[in-house]
Nucleic acid binder design. Sequence first.
RNA 1: GCGGGCGUCGCCAAGUGGUUAAGGCAGUGGCUUGUGGCGCCACCAUUCGGGGGUUCGAGUCCCCUCGCUCGCCCCA
Length: 424
Amino acid sequence: MEPLQSLRGMVDLLPEQTPVWQRIEATARQHFRRAGIAEIRTPLLEVTELFARGIGVATDVVGKEMYSFLDRGERHCTLRPEGTASVVRAAIQHGLLSQGAQRLWYGGPMFRYERPQAGRQRQFHQIGLEFLGLADPRSDAEAIAIAWDLLAGVGLAGLTLELNSLGSHDDRVRFRAALVGWLEERRDQLDPDSQQRLVSNPLRILDSKNPATQALLAEAPTLAAALAPESRERFERVQEALSRLEIPFVLNPRLVRGLDYYGHTAFEITSSQLGAQATVCGGGRYDTLVQQLGGPVTPAVGWALGMERLVLLAQAADGPASQAAPAPDLYVVSRGAAAEALALPLARRGRRAGLAVELDFSGAAFGKQFKRADRCGARWAAVIGEAEAAEGVVVLKDLRAKATADRRLTAEALLAWLRESGSA
RNA sequence: GCGGGCGUCGCCAAGUGGUUAAGGCAGUGGCUUGUGGCGCCACCAUUCGGGGGUUCGAGUCCCCUCGCUCGCCCCA
């Protein structure tokens, strides 16, 4: 029989990795709770049209990366490639938007059919934040600050916050025309990818990695120059707010987010330690999305951060040592039918009393069982052999001490003693 | 979707055409029918991701395929 494998790009998180994830998730929850942000959970599966309308049909995410299929009822379904569209859909569907501003967070798996590489899987995990109904430039800064502090809370340093303004819809239309006009005249100097994008998505040419294209772009009209006075002022307010929070940022005029719904503030938090996929967190303002999905006119800001990339950085930051599984308080060792019958009940009583208890079913030589007890880091061993079983007693052995005398106690006395000694 | 690298035991890893595939860790059994962390002994890949081919002979060469990985694209 050929053993089956997980699908390409679908990764198992084994027991030794799970603690890092839990730690990060706990940190995130804590930061959200302090900031008064409530969790929302939405389905992993949505109608395909939600993403087509929300993210934009012309984007790569929608065009070629979605896990889409027809269900038994002939509905077009898609495994969510990102979280924002679903959150907005849910907020509209349940009338959350008529109850005032919503400060929400979500977390969980997302799916994108791409070639896996460092920091990128087909099923990956994001934690995201969405502020719905907030227009104030300071809310952009607040959202960014929460991301920044959360990342710091996980213990990461050396991150860069890159900031840009994409302006209003009108600003972008104006700029796009200017940029396309200018680049058309120099089409032959563009790399093939960028030539393609001249028609499909001209703004994306700005963050081309091609050196020649970048050199050319240095002379090109800039987005910043195309911003209307109100847009520019708004962007300045965001920067002021960040400065007051003492959050350092770098203006990056080439920063263009990939999804259609972004306007005005756009930002990314990047790390130089991640290889090609440097972005840990990305987000921005999306004042038109809610309306586009059939809801009331509602300003919004949000971001998403990539768990896999965060885990990569956290592991690099605090090394592999912090991942040790928590050691049990008590390890139950038994040998002989009568004794073995008592082991599980004793373990359960211990657990009910609040102790972390593991037990050995092997019935192997005591030496073997002690070896295992020792390896798993248990503080104490409870030993039941033929004699103890007959006497209704348990031997408590201190695994940390070298030569402390063992104690012979009843089960009750043993558990009481452990509780008092502070092991629980 | 496109390019580069790689694929030998659960993990790490020798081996680069010649008869029998090192070693370490982990695991199992024992030295010690009932007391651990050390030590010692034994066991643990008829087989080198899979399938074809070349050859007297292949883990070692060729082709295909699958997987992993890094990069491009894109993005968190």
